[in-house]
């Protein structure tokens, strides 16, 4: 049976909503997991307060979670399984959309959001094979749910591509930008946790005598280890972003007759690149490592989201894909 594009696209929409529901369930499971960790943390003695934050130094090896490896986080596992399931439906939805359109499924905002969040989930799930970062699960599934859910607001029917979009550079430039965003999202999540963790560590040192309060933060790696992890994701994201910038310039040179013209979207891509270059520098600057550099990573990602949402919708520019008129 040959499915016509319209039917395929409506299947795709059904799959998207199934995926969103599964992500919501995953988010709940992960949230329960965090609550359980928080409870469990009462039992775990806070060893770190004996150390003091003063001894922190460049030691990327110190990234072992303190107790996170313990297998009792059942809800975390349920969350991950649900995320996998959601991912499968999400992947199906994206593939169907691409098949229905007869081109890559990232040519308008609805599709960028669909593919971008798919890559976020993929990167998160892939990273789990390498390191147990399930404590990021509620953040990642939450972010994906919000982005994918609100992207349905921008749902558009499949329309033929505008001429300027008929280019291999659409395939490369937009895909790599989404991939960069996925890595930067993980770095962002880790930087936020790093800030929380650093604050808790500071308070633990100051109030060494006070009874330990419950906190899921006690079950995740130290602020320093989180910083090291965030940095690693950020530099991968940064490399992809650099590539996005260059590929975009090549495409602009073909489509618009110049490789750089300070179009709004170009400006924001540049701003984000410079912010992350600043973040990488901050990590190597005395007095900026730690909390300050984490803020830069956060500002950088806020700019990424701003670029994708506000700039796309409200700023004038060539990236409106108006093409020839």
């Amino acid at each position: 049976m040959q499915l016509d594009p319209v039917t395929m696209d409506s299947f795709s929409v059904v799959l998207v909503w199934t995926a969103i529901s599964l992500y919501v369930l995953a988010f709940i499971a992960y949230a329960v997991d965090l609550a359980n960790r928080s409870q469990a943390s009462l039992a775990a003695k806070d060893a770190r307060q004996l150390v003091g934050v003063g001894a922190r130094a460049a030691s990327p090896a110190a990234s072992e979670p303190v107790v996170a490896a313990a297998p009792r986080y059942v809800w975390g596992r349920i969350g991950t399984s649900l995320t996998w399931l959601g991912f499968v439906f999400h992947l199906g939805a994206t593939l169907l959309r691409g098949l229905a359109a007869g081109r890559v499924p990232w040519s308008n905002m609805y599709e960028f959001a669909m593919t971008g969040t798919l890559l976020m989930t993929a990167v998160y799930l892939g990273v789990l094979f390498w390191k147990d970062l399930r404590f990021l699960g509620s953040f990642m599934t939450g972010l994906v749910t919000v982005l994918l859910g609100s992207s349905s607001l921008f749902y558009v029917q499949i329309t033929p591509l505008m001429d300027p979009l008929k280019s291999v550079w659409l395939v490369i430039h937009v895909f790599v930008a989404s991939l960069a965003t996925a890595f930067l999202a993980l770095a962002f999540a880790l930087s936020v946790l790093q800030l929380l963790q650093a604050r808790r560590e500071r308070m633990a040192v100051e109030a060494a005598e006070a009874p330990a309060r419950r906190s899921m933060l006690r079950t995740i790696p130290s602020a320093e280890a989180l910083e090291g992890l965030a940095y690693r994701f950020a530099i991968i994201g940064f490399i992809f972003w650099t590539f996005t910038l260059i590929a975009g310039a090549i495409w602009a040179n073909d489509a618009w007759g110049r490789y750089w013209g300070f179009d709004t979207k170009e400006v924001w891509t540049f701003i984000i690149w410079v912010l992350y270059a600043g973040y990488i520098h901050a990590r190597a600057t005395r007095g900026w490592r730690g909390t300050r550099s984490a803020w830069l990573s956060i500002v950088g990602f806020v700019a990424v989201i701003f670029n994708f949402t506000i700039v796309n919708m409200f700023f004038e520019g060539l990236h409106a894909y108006s093409g020839l008129s």
Binding site: V267, W268, I271, G278, H281, T285, R286, G287, F315, G317
Partner: peptide, 19 residues
């Protein structure tokens, strides 16, 4: 390093009004 960092951040901020 600090100057480079501050200048980088300034560059990012200064580029915003152009958009």
């Amino acid at each position: 390093m600090r100057t480079a960092l501050v200048l980088l951040l300034l560059l990012a901020i200064a580029a915003v009004p152009g958009s």
